[in-house]
């Protein structure tokens, strides 16, 4: 029953792409900013987080893993602008480094999950038949697991740590992407040029990658932006449960675990700032994603 909407996305994406290319990149960007103030705001947040993550080493005033036992649980001050946690670590520095962890996990999981889902979804639509049938059944199985439960199980098997958390979040994202892509690809498949390409004797790989994939890019991009947000939230949840990134690596979800909760009354800054950081980042990504979708596909505004 979800076939209808993505179908339209794909077609609309096709139509939209042509005139856009004529304008210069800068023009497109300026136009985007003018039309999508909220999206620009979101993009600004994402950019700030990126800059923070990349240049954490220069921005952070302290080593994020350095304990200062003389300054434990200190309220925000000039020395520690966001205060220190219960182990005497500078919260601001941990937040800045945490941005790196969040973005690494968020983008890697979203892109890997998205890319695998894209290829599988398009191939499934293209080949049809038994492959498609099997693929659908596998999707059904994976989709029946709530994201966090599947991620938890994967972490249980492979262990904790940044890489495994990425893996754990990637796996549940694959079917979510695969399903949407397959639906839009099914629609693309009916368009005559795919038949034409086949008639010309192109190989499967070439048809899938060169002809079908580009045409499902619009819904894919929109989904990807949602995935990044989801992945960051999932990482935070896993870390909060103690099953994600492990101490002493600075990560926002981890900063909310243990001490933050224990001292939420007496030292609220320990809990407040990491939560705000997660919220702000995902908010930025969502706003940007919404604006991106509106720009790519006006017909689907605000979905």
């Amino acid at each position: 029953m979800t076939v209808v909407a993505p179908n339209r996305v794909a077609v609309a994406g096709l139509v939209e792409e042509a005139p856009e290319r004529k304008r210069s990149l800068l023009g497109v960007a300026l136009n985007f900013c003018r039309r999508q103030p909220l999206g620009t705001f979101g993009l600004a947040i994402v950019v700030v987080m990126f800059v923070a993550g990349i240049s954490a080493g220069w921005i952070a005033p302290y080593d994020p893993e350095e304990n200062d036992f003389n300054a434990m649980m200190e309220a925000p001050s000039w020395a520690h602008i966001l205060g220190t946690d219960q182990l005497g670590r500078d919260i601001f520095s941990r937040l800045v480094y945490g941005a790196r962890t969040a973005l690494i996990v968020g983008f890697n999981a979203a892109f890997m999950g998205g890319a695998i889902g894209l290829v599988l979804g398009v191939s499934s639509a293209y080949f049809g038949g038994l492959f498609d049938l099997l693929f659908q059944r596998v999707l059904d199985v994976l989709m029946a697991f709530p994201l966090i439960i599947l991620a938890l199980a994967v972490v249980a098997v492979f262990g904790t740590g940044v890489f495994n958390v990425i893996l754990a979040i990637t796996i549940p994202l694959i079917p979510r992407c695969g399903r949407v892509v397959r639906a839009s690809a099914l629609a693309v498949r009916e368009i005559p040029y795919v038949d034409a390409a086949r008639a010309l004797g192109f190989g499967h790989a070439r048809i899938v990658l060169r002809h079908m994939v580009p045409n499902v890019v619009a819904p894919f991009l929109i989904m990807l932006s949602a995935f990044v947000g989801q992945a960051i939230l999932a990482e935070a949840s896993l870390s909060y449960l103690g099953l994600g990134v492990q101490e002493p690596v600075p990560a926002w979800g981890l900063m909310l675990q243990g001490g933050a909760e224990e001292y939420a009354t007496t030292a609220p800054w320990i809990a407040v700032f990491p939560g705000l950081a997660i919220m702000l980042t995902v908010l930025g990504i969502s706003l940007f994603g919404d604006a991106l979708r509106d720009a790519i596909d006006p017909k689907l505004r605000d979905r």
Binding site: V155, A156, V157, F158, G159, T160, G161, N164, L241, G242, L243, Q246, E247, Q257, G258
Partner: peptide
């Protein structure tokens, strides 16, 4: 890699 699954385990 270590493979523990211990919620709340401070490592």
């Amino acid at each position: 890699a270590d493979r523990s699954l211990v919620p709340g385990d401070a490592r």
